[in-house]
């Protein structure tokens, strides 16, 4: 019984990561289509290096994600610091909905508001759209990893450190890894975001996921839109996603245990 369950669980785990493995293999596939393997080749990566649109997409994704990560974690840090270790049912009830509500509803709502006020859709609206979700997510993350250390802060106070000194010498160094992790995960969620971006962007502005989406809708029209050319564009996204996601999961899990 135990052995059977064990085998099944590990097979299932492997299946979870198999698609990504196929994607990486196909990005080295000489053939432009996913159906079969026709020998290894770097042609899609060479193509990607010449791909100006993809470079623009990567750049836009990067700047949006960096801004969104920093902004959301700053706002969330202040809030989490103010809340501390107390139970704040009402505040949490206001902070959590962005996480649980289906993304498409949130995207539609933002789309309508930006259109209603006549905002110019582009970098700023996309960044704000991502941040509206990220800020809540960063808050939850920081609450889990901890930004208040009541006993340690008390100890510092009794040892003669004032409020600022305590913040600088005790709170900041201890909260720092959590802050970095929160920035990394919100950066990732923004960097790879698709649905929210689709609804909040305007003419002329696109991120990498949007570019790939548009190309995927007309496969094989030109070299850039061959499926395996898209695989090559996806590979760096996948590697960034996996490394940040694993680091985040491991860190938050270790904090929960404490």
């Amino acid at each position: 019984m135990r052995g059977l369950l064990r085998a099944y669980t590990f097979v299932l785990m492997a299946l979870l990561y198999l698609p990504v493995a196929f994607m990486i293999v196909n990005s080295f596939n000489e053939d432009p289509f996913m159906e079969g393997f026709r020998g290894p080749s770097l042609r899609w990566f060479e193509l990607a290096l010449r791909d100006v649109q993809a470079a623009v997409g990567y750049f836009n994704s990067f700047t949006v994600a960096l801004a969104s990560g920093l902004l959301s974690v700053s706002l969330a840090f202040l809030a989490a610091y103010a809340v501390g270790n107390r139970r704040v049912t009402l505040f949490d009830a206001l902070a959590y909905p962005p996480i649980v509500i289906p993304e498409i509803a949130e995207a539609v709502a933002l789309f309508m508001m930006f259109h209603t006020v006549g905002a110019e859709m582009g970098w700023l609206t996309v960044m704000i759209g991502h941040t509206a979700f990220n800020v809540a997510f960063a808050y939850v993350t920081l609450r889990a990893t901890g930004v208040r250390f009541e006993n340690l802060e008390n100890a510092a106070r009794t040892l003669g450190a004032g409020g600022l000194r305590t913040f600088k010498d005790v709170v900041l160094p201890l909260a720092f890894p959590g802050v970095v992790v929160a920035i990394a995960i919100t950066f990732l969620l923004s960097f790879t975001n698709f649905i929210k971006t689709l609804f909040t962007t305007g003419p002329g502005f696109y991120t990498l996921p949007l570019l790939i989406w548009n190309r995927a809708k007309r496969p094989g029209v030109e070299e850039f839109t061959y499926p395996n050319a898209l695989n090559a564009l996806f590979v760096p996204l996948v590697l960034i996603s996996l490394s940040i996601a694993i680091a985040y999961t491991v860190y938050v899990m270790s904090k929960r245990k404490e």
């Binding site: 785990m13 698609p19 196929f22 969620l189 790879t192 499926p227 996948v238 996996l242 996601a245 899990m253």
Partner: peptide, 30 residues
């Protein structure tokens, strides 16, 4: 610990990426 990390990690990877990855394996099996 290993299995939990493995099963939780996909949470943070965007659906577009995962859907496209899935497409690769589906096409392989036609």
């Amino acid at each position: 610990a290993v299995l939990l990390v493995a099963f939780i990690t996909p949470f943070w990877i965007d659906f577009l990426i995962r859907a496209w990855a899935m497409k690769n394996i589906l096409y392989f099996f036609d």
